[in-house]
Design a protein around this nucleic acid. Structure first.
Lengths: 187, 187
DNA sequence: CGCACAGGCTAATGGTGTTAGCTTTTGAGC
DNA sequence: GCTCAAAAGCTAACACCATTAGCCTGTGCG
């Protein structure tokens, strides 16, 4: 037998993400990951402690992917242009990978494994608002409002909750303008 | 009606909701419902076609519960007072029954079983905005923005996504005011 | 050259949804 | 009041899942 390619935790997570993209979060099963990586199911336990832990790793990946993307989007921008770019990048990500977005942990700060990745994502949002000169809790509230809008829209859109997709771009533009106007009145 | 049934579909759904309140959506299992209703697991199929269909019934119940509650909240109010009351009632419901809220279907309009209940819930929101005199697509956009805010906040809060719960009331008040200001500028 | 061990395997257990087919109960009609 | 069809329960069985235990083997390191 030739040298069998060794499996790593990273490759297991890769397979998990492919599976999620194709079949949704519900389709992430150890049996399916094993089949895709060409290994017997119990062998996965050499790289992952449990299905729950694998889900955790997937969550970290998604958070990192979003952080990376939003960071590059916002680099070199400030003020309304930065916020607008961030909000559209958020929606773009979710439209490209709706199933993957559904695998994003809602409470990364309460999980040891995901905490760092969660903090980084929120810091990107905070940094995007830096040029508005918000201090202390004002900055926190502004970040929360931003999260509510982008996640609320993304959650409903990716879940097919908007009935007809007609005019969704307009709705999102209105939300962006609403938030920017609100930010301006705040400072 | 040859036989008086000891168990009915409604009672099965009742047990399912109790289970969800206690253990979350993930805890809803036919075996657990059977144990709670004092019946063998396969017997449930006499009242429910499958676990998926039971989830659908649960979703309808949650939608109806919310519709009923928000309707009573908003009755006799109009304008900003109505919107404000609706938004706070939404958050109250989710804080009282966070696990149950997670069982709310995201796309009720695409499910035959849930469509009617979903339409009614959205109509309550639309009616709440009636006094602003929005026409056609303006009304739709305004309803969508409202949904984005209330669901976005509820989703993050009930998922424990806000880190420390400190100042969450303030954040929500800011969102309410942001939406009301936006509505005013719209008309 | 030898050997520890990482990383694969098979077998087995307990949980799940679901189907098939049998039994019991009970109300409706004669 | 008796009969009987069907509603509503049951057990048995199957497929699929996660997980654990224990074995085997090749590889890299000393």
């Amino acid at each position: 037998m030739a040298v069998r390619p060794r499996l790593t935790t990273a490759k297991v997570v890769d397979a998990a993400l492919e599976l999620i993209d194709e079949q949704g979060v519900e389709g992430l099963t150890l049996a399916a990951v094993a089949a895709r990586t060409g290994v017997a199911t119990p062998s996965l336990y050499k790289h992952v402690a449990s299905l729950a832990e694998l889900r955790g790793h997937v969550g970290v990946r998604v958070l990192e992917e979003m952080t990376d993307r939003f960071t590059r989007t916002v680099l070199g921008l400030s003020g309304d242009a930065a916020v607008e770019a961030l909000m559209h990048a958020y929606r773009s990500y979710v439209r490209e990978s709706p199933k993957r977005y559904a695998a994003m942990p809602m409470d990364p700060l309460h999980d040891e494994l995901q905490q760092a990745a969660g903090v980084k994502l929120i810091e990107v949002m905070l940094a995007t608002l830096r040029s508005y000169g918000l201090e202390g809790s004002d900055a926190i509230h502004a970040t929360r409002r931003l999260r509510v809008i982008v996640h609320g829209f993304a959650s409903i859109e990716s879940g097919g909750g908007f009935g007809l997709p007609e005019g969704l771009d307009d709705t999102y533009d209105q939300l962006v303008r609403m938030y920017l106007t609100d930010l301006r009145g705040q400072s």
